[in-house]
Design a binder for these strands. Structure first.
Lengths: 338, 338
DNA sequence: TAGATGTGTCGAAGCGCTTCAATAGCCCGT
DNA sequence: ACGGGCTATTGAAGCGCTTCGACACATCTA
């Protein structure tokens, strides 16, 4: 492996000069810089990451902690992860992938060893066990998702309360008065991840304000479960004319079942989904939906964490950044039958 | 941050002793070891990753290169990634996440900088542009997927040819003589990722051997596309009594459409899918399927790459490891109508 | 012209760890 | 009682880079 010293010799300068050419932390005259750069190219030099990390106490690595459960919202997670990795690379950083399997200890290990300069945590629960460690860690962190207590923490998430309100707004505007919410699996509520509750709260608030009724039922993604949920909903409230689906896995089965039951979408029943655009558009009926801006969440998380890294003074205040939901009207919603 | 030197002082031993306690590369007497371990715990010591990497020229990091396109087989990719990360951690390594966006250069960067000790490449294409770099890199690599020329390379993949044969075996055994293959999107074939072709080849080989006919049609995951494909299939060959689905995104729509058309599964038509177990079991009809052993692939990839790292002599020969497919019979396949 | 200022480069001191050769102490057989 | 062969421990030399202060020289100001 070519070292910085060899580059320096080849270019006829000192090692520190090469280093400054690389980092730009001191002015180097154009001729010298060019000479050094040529040597770097000719020798095929790559700075050694370990040495760099040791000398500068910066690894240029961001740790990304994935959720423990890999059974839910997989495409969203993946999209976030890719966005994080891509954005980080644009800013000269790499991403270390941590899974939930290691538990909260991972935070300590990564921070303690200086492996990563900062952390991004996904799938944050309301009382997440990683939070105490994050709070006292001497490294910046950004959460994707909202815990119960956001004090001292920087978080990014979709504004799910507003999302719920927005869905109801749209449906009520079309004249719907009886709305069903096909929620996430019961396990999601038990884990207290927060977002499902927040959506529901938004739905209820707005429904109350607009004089609509809401029937909420948790629902797994399996065909069977959706069938059961749907049956119970129509049984309990036959006047239901609109459905808000939060569990993206339930969408396909839901549409299939409605068709099978002879309920036309949107003529007999309107459907609004909270899901990635791609899911909304690839169904049998293009769905009116509120997009989950996975990419933007990942990007913002990196930007926030980098701002903290740069603003070394620690002067960057903690903040909660809720992305505004955007509802796209497609073919699955229409005026309520009178 | 606590350093090794401080631990040494605290325990009343030399730095090297602490190092040897940590690495186990020399025998340390029990009392000394315990004293050192206590000091480590009491001081909350974590070895500095950068210093370690520098001194040992081992970063204990494995790079995982994700596919560029994030639109396909997402759950499989995710499962592989998680399995890789988990297995790597069990073996004392971390995983660096690289996206395809950086291009083949990423290989050079990661290897050149010593950031990672080894690489695992996903979504390998037949003529993958990363391969030349991988071949000449002084670091071990394992591919998940099969390129055209596997010389000098270590690869892990599901044996897709055998998968194709297996599906036909099963269907022919039930008396089916006209089989349709709902393949991957045309883009997949153009990208020449190999696995789709291999499956098809297996299907054709075995069908010829058993005297069955095969009709293959590429197909996108959208509802529309599946509808079109299905229409064309039944139009062209009305006697089709079984379908092999390779594109997992097409499964939901396919089942929905069949039901809608009044074709009962499995009475009128049998369906075999190549997809993750979870997908097979959460449909309206539990699907007979060949599982994509994502987890096992990830795990094996790590094991192979670690074997290469350990067998430092370079004595570990390149090898192609094809995992045998396993077909699970569920409710979607039955005897052909006579 | 002398001093002040600024620019570009260099030397050297680490960063925290691993590892090798060397050492100190021990038990053994004779 | 002494050399030989163990085992447990140590000191010191780096690993390749960053960064700080120093320095040489050119340019400006009074």
């Amino acid at each position: 492996m070519v070292t910085l010293a060899e580059v320096a010799r080849h270019a006829g300068v000192s090692a520190s000069t090469v280093s400054y050419v690389l980092s730009g932390k001191r002015t180097i005259s154009a001729p010298t810089r060019e000479r050094v750069e040529r040597s770097i190219r000719e020798l095929g030099y790559h700075p050694n990451a370990g040495a760099r990390a040791l000398a500068s106490s910066r690894s240029n690595i961001i740790a990304l902690m994935m959720p423990l459960r890999t059974d839910m919202y997989v495409p969203v997670m993946m999209e976030i992860a890719i966005a994080v990795a891509t954005t980080a690379r644009e800013r000269g950083h790499d991403v270390l992938l941590l899974t939930g399997h290691e538990g909260p200890e991972a935070v300590r290990r990564v921070v303690g060893s200086g492996l990563a300069d900062a952390m991004i945590l996904m799938d944050v629960e309301l009382e997440d066990r990683r939070l105490p460690l994050v709070r006292e860690a001497p490294r910046p962190a950004v959460l994707i998702g909202l815990p119960a207590d956001t004090g001292e923490l920087t978080c990014v998430d979709l504004d799910f309360t507003a999302t719920g309100r927005l869905c109801v707004d749209h449906l009520a505007g079309l004249g719907h008065r009886d709305v069903a919410v096909v929620g996430e699996a019961a396990a999601v509520y038990e884990r207290r991840t927060g977002f499902a509750e927040r959506t529901l709260q938004g739905v209820r608030e707005r429904a109350t304000e607009l004089g609509a009724r809401v029937l909420h039922r948790p629902c797994e993604g399996s065909y069977e479960s959706v069938a059961g949920t749907l049956a119970r909903v129509f049984d309990e409230r036959p006047s239901t004319s609109a459905v808000i689906v939060q569990n993206e896995a339930a969408i396909g089965p839901l549409l299939g079942l409605l068709r099978q039951q002879g309920r036309a979408v949107p003529e007999d029943i309107s459907v609004v989904a909270v899901c990635p655009e791609q899911v909304a558009t690839s169904q049998s009926v293009a769905l009116t939906s509120v997009a989950i801006p996975a990419q933007e969440m990942g990007r913002r998380a990196v930007e926030l964490v980098m701002a903290k890294l740069d603003g070394a003074g620690g002067a960057v205040p903690a903040r909660v950044e809720l992305l505004p939901p955007r509802l796209t009207t497609r073919a699955s919603t229409g005026p309520a039958a009178r």
